[in-house]
Amino acid sequence: MAVPGNRFSPTAQRVIGALPFLWLGLFFLLPFAIVLKISMADALIAVPPYTEFLARTADGIKLQATLDNYQFLYTDELYALAFLNSLKVAAVSTLLCLLIGYPLAWGVARAEARTRNLLLLLIVLPSWTSFLIRVYAWMGILGNNGVLNQLLLGLGIVDSPLTLLRTDIAVYIGIVYTYLPFMVLPLYANLAKLDQRLLEAAADLGANPWRCFWLVTLPLSRIGILAGCLLVFIPATGEFVIPELLGGADTLMIGKLLWQEFFNNRDWPLASAVAIVLLALLLAPIAVYYRAQAPGSAAVAVTAMRGRRDGGA
C-alpha cells in the first residue's frame, strides 16, 4: 500500500498524508466529542432531551458539565456485570472465530490462484446480503420448529426439539457467523504473503509439519491474528442486534443496556456515559495491537469489509 513518493509533488504528498487525519477528525473525533459532551449533561424532557453544555445566564455564559452520570455507573453493579458479560461473550466469540478462521484462511492462502479468488468470493459473498436478514435467517434455523430441529428430529438424533433460539448458544452462533469474515480476511492477507522458502528451510532442517507450523507459520502470522481478533472482539463487545434477536431475556450485554438507557429511560446523557466507558475499555486491546504492529501490516485490507457490514445493517 506504500505510496510511490517520487510520482507525487510534495504538496500532493502532504494532502494525501492529511487525508486519514481529516477522516478520523470528521468521523471519529467529532462524534466522540459530541457524545462526550452529552455524557456530561443532565437528562431533560425537551428536544433534545438533555441540558445544554453552555448555558446563557444573567452573568454571561456558564458551563454546565457534571460527572454524575459516570458516578452513577459505579453505584449499580448492573453496569459492571453487563460490561464483564459483554467482554466474556466477545472473548469467547473471538476465540471461536480464530479456531475456525485460521484453518480456513490457511486453506485459501494455499489454494491455487484460480480457486483462491473463488474461495475468497465465497467468504465475502454472504455479506452482500443485509446483515439483518442473515440474522433473521438464523432465527428460522434455530427455532423450536426450525430447520435444524426438524433435521435432528428427522434423523432421530434427538427426541424433542432442542431449545437453541433465545439462549446464549444462539448468540455465540450469530456472532461467530457474522464476524468470521473479519477474522479470515486479515489472516488470509497475512498468510498469503508468508515466504514459502522459510517453511522449506524448516522442513529441510528436520522439522515435522506440526513444528513448522508452530515455530514458523504461527509466529509470522501474529499480526494477522491480532488484526483479526481486534476486528471481531471490538464490534462483538458492543453488539446489540444479535443478542436482541437471538438471545434470551436473561442475556445481559452492554449494548442492550445502552439501548435501554437511550430508549426506555430517555436518558441520553447516561447512555453516552456508558458508550464512553465502553470505548475506554476497548482502547486497551487497541493499544496492545498498536504496540505489536509492525509497519506495513495487513490490517488495512479489511477496513472496506467492515464498512460494508455496517452499511448493510
Binding site: 449499580d76 448492573l78 456485570l81 431475556a249 436473561d250 445481559l252 435501554q260 426506555n264 429511560n265
Partner: peptide, 11 residues
C-alpha cells in the same frame, strides 16, 4: 426499567 431488567435477567 431497572427493576424490569432485574426481573428479566434474574439480576
Amino acid at each position: 426499567t431497572r427493576v424490569w431488567t432485574a426481573v428479566k435477567t434474574g439480576r
